Amino acid sequence: MQIEPTELKAARDRLVRVQGQIGGIVKMLDEGRDCTELLTQLSAASTALTRAGFTIISTGMAKCGNDPEGKANRETLEKAFMSLA
């Protein structure tokens, strides 16, 4: 099942922001920043990454209904969804 990139723009944008957050976290580590600040940033990046995953999976599930292999794709996506939960 293929999903058009335009349908995943929000997820892509979120992933780009996470990429920037991760770079910031690495810089904080290199600077020896406070553990609490690091954990706060790690938590934010983790949450954003999970939300991007849910967006991708939910978009895929919505497309399954129109896909000839919909049932098999849906089962795969449901399994992926549960791995994020």
Rank of each mutant, 00 (worst) to 15 (best):
M1T: 06
M1S: 10
M1A: 13
M1V: 05
Q2N: 09
Q2I: 03
I3N: 00
I3H: 02
E4F: 02
P5T: 00
P5G: 01
T6S: 11
T6W: 00
T6D: 01
T6I: 12
L8A: 02
L8Y: 02
L8I: 05
K9H: 04
A10K: 14
A10N: 10
A10H: 06
A10E: 15
A11C: 03
A11D: 02
A11H: 07
A11S: 12
R12G: 00
R12S: 01
R12V: 01
D13Y: 08
D13N: 08
D13C: 04
R14W: 10
R14Q: 13
L15E: 02
V16C: 02
R17Q: 12
R17A: 11
V18T: 05
Q19Y: 09
G20R: 13
G20M: 13
G20P: 06
Q21S: 05
Q21A: 06
Q21H: 15
Q21N: 08
I22P: 04
G23C: 10
G23L: 15
G23P: 00
G24E: 14
G24V: 10
G24P: 08
G24Y: 09
G24D: 11
I25W: 08
V26G: 01
K27M: 12
K27C: 06
D30H: 12
D30G: 14
E31D: 15
G32C: 12
G32F: 07
R33M: 07
R33A: 05
D34C: 08
D34A: 07
D34L: 07
C35Y: 09
T36I: 13
T36F: 12
L38I: 09
L38T: 01
L39S: 03
T40P: 01
T40V: 10
Q41M: 10
Q41H: 14
L42H: 08
S43V: 05
S43C: 07
S43P: 00
S43F: 03
A44N: 07
S46F: 05
A48P: 01
A48Q: 11
T50E: 14
T50D: 12
R51Q: 14
R51E: 15
R51G: 11
A52T: 05
G53M: 09
G53K: 11
F54K: 12
F54S: 04
T55M: 15
I56M: 10
I56V: 15
I56C: 03
I56E: 00
I57D: 08
S58I: 09
T59E: 06
G60L: 11
M61W: 04
M61V: 14
A62W: 04
A62I: 11
C64G: 07
G65R: 12
N66V: 06
D67C: 14
D67K: 09
D67R: 06
P68V: 07
E69A: 14
E69P: 00
E69Q: 14
K71W: 09
K71D: 13
A72W: 03
A72E: 15
A72D: 12
N73A: 09
N73P: 00
R74D: 03
R74L: 15
R74N: 06
T76M: 13
T76H: 13
T76S: 13
T76I: 12
L77M: 06
L77Y: 09
E78L: 15
E78H: 07
E78F: 11
K79S: 12
K79E: 14
A80Q: 04
A80H: 01
F81I: 00
M82N: 09
M82W: 09
M82S: 14
M82P: 01
M82Y: 08
S83I: 08
S83C: 03
L84M: 13
L84N: 05
L84Q: 05
A85M: 13
A85W: 07
